[in-house]
Design a protein around this nucleic acid. Structure first.
Lengths: 214, 214
DNA sequence: TCTGGACTCAAACGTATGTTTCAAACAAAT
DNA sequence: ATTTGTTTGAAACATACGTTTGAGTCCAGA
């Protein structure tokens, strides 16, 4: 099952179509059509549509989590003995995203959108899969986030993390469409790198706002 | 087509099911099953599934926009001759949401989740419908937002509004699930009112962060 | 050259979907 | 009581979906 040309073609097509249209709205026939492979190839190589969805995520999430772990190692070493600051954590996260090797120009936007869809579309099996596979890296980052915001109560921190997650996932999941709108309105081109550069100060300020209660 | 018992039952069931499962993942048979009406009733009363989706939105968005317009009238009158502040705008928005008449306890959470889904699920007809019907109120609010943040460049403001929208839509669209998680973890109950109370300072601080460039 | 496993292909299968049909039931007005 | 227009009901329709099948192709190793 290693590196078949067909497998990659399916993954490429599925990645794009899932990002464009969502999971349920994308049929295997659309995928195999764009990939120019036979319909049965999906079930032959992946077993089912659910497994294909998971495989799409695994292909970019596994190397990403590895890279993030290394980035966090470096950051923790640098700032030792103090815990990393909130801003440095967010910067490391976004830079690790941006630094990921990409198949083509739109790769980052696609990954971001997929990540957003993972939270929004109610695909129970996906949640479970991501939880099982990537909870360790995720948990490590959350722990560091906690150390970086000691002034927040656990409840306040919980909700603010959701706010951050929402702002990021939502914006990134529509980054291409939003960039196009902005171009039509003001004639300005925007790269993903610039969006995340604008995102970090926004999130940092939000996290450091005065809490509503102790 | 006015106020048939059947029509309301369908709208109630559709509202809940769409919020729980999304649009494509909810079949007309599920809806008519929960509403205990005949399958054909949907197409008879609404014409199509698409129109039903739009009707669900219209039922809560039309009175909401009316209420928001009035709230904005009041706010503008109060703060005249100065434009309303950013925080007052956000507060008015959230309070208008919270003050909406509700069919039952979960109504707000359901409306919020539907609003989030409207942005996330790729239902082209929905976007078009919302644009046609509610762009005036939406545009008015955006204009006031602009007056309230004169220090931001048009580009910076554009992106930060997207960040706000994302944090709100994302959090609200999963508010019930997130509240449940928090209850399991820390044993704390959370009402929608409390979430938006925490949201406003976060967004205000984010909007007022120092821009990355002039 | 032969063999066997990996892969591709066209076709079909079973099921679920949105929609349509048309007769029956109902309500209100004549 | 009869008629008229509206609403319901069970059934069927056409289509699209994920999946399976089985014959065919390819190619490395014996």
């Amino acid at each position: 099952m290693a590196q078949s040309e067909t497998v990659d073609r399916i993954l490429d097509a599925a990645e794009e179509l899932f990002a464009e249209r969502g999971f349920s709205e994308t049929s295997l026939r659309m995928i195999t059509g764009r990939a120019r492979v036979n319909l049965a190839a999906v079930n032959y190589h992946f077993g089912s549509k659910k497994s294909l969805i998971q495989a799409v995520f695994a292909r970019f999430l596994t190397p990403f989590c590895l890279a993030l772990e290394q980035s966090l190692d470096r950051l923790e070493a640098e700032s030792s003995p103090h815990p990393p600051s909130l801003e440095s954590l967010l910067k490391v996260l976004t830079q690790t995203v941006v630094a990921m090797p990409r198949h083509h120009d739109r790769s980052i936007a696609i990954y971001m959108r997929l990540q957003g869809l993972a939270y929004t579309q109610s695909q129970g099996h996906l949640r479970e899969f991501l939880e099982n596979e990537y909870s360790r890296t995720f948990g490590r980052f959350m722990g560091l986030l906690k150390e970086a915001t000691p002034q927040l109560s656990a409840v306040e921190r919980y909700w603010r993390i959701q706010f951050m997650l929402g702002a990021t996932a939502f914006t990134m999941s529509s980054s291409e469409a939003l960039s196009d709108i902005l171009k039509n309105k003001l004639g300005v081109e925007t790269a993903v790198e610039e969006i995340v550069a604008r995102l970090v100060p926004f999130l940092t300020a939000g996290m450091q706002a005065d809490p509503v209660r102790g």
